[in-house]
Amino acid sequence: MGLFDSWSDLFAAATPWQEVEAEAPKEEEEEKEDVKESKDDGEDGEVEEEEAEEEEEEEEEMVDPKEKFEEECKESKGCAPAKHHFEECVERVQGGENKKGPSEDCVEEFFHLAHCANQCAAPKLWASLK
């Protein structure tokens, strides 16, 4: 066990990620509180800024980044064929041109468009999320 522990200690020292403590010692908590307090002190300025940001966001009614990026992607050149097909299908179904045939839905076209938009938006979305 000793060998293993020493290995793991060595390893923990060498690895960039941190060890997560199960129990926070009291002293540290106090320190944390202090830190929190000091943070609070320091945050006053930040809080105002944040509030200002929040107000702006509230005014704009926070847009979900996923929806934003997907809208952009749907308009992009890469998804133009899928969008075209989808819109054509919607027109066809809503126009009721093929009333004789079996009823049609645009689920498949919607899938293709959504797949294209998601594929394009995924990396941008992850870059914007925390």
Binding site: K66, S103, D105, C106, V107, F110
Partner: peptide
């Protein structure tokens, strides 16, 4: 993640959504 965020504002034209169910493209059967 896709299921939680993937609800479209309205189901695509012609898609049949039974009563009491919601349209979600990622759920098998939608």
């Amino acid at each position: 993640f896709s299921l939680l965020t993937g609800y479209p504002e309205e189901p695509p034209a012609g898609a049949a959504v039974p009563d009491g169910l919601n349209f979600n493209p990622y759920f098998p059967g939608t």
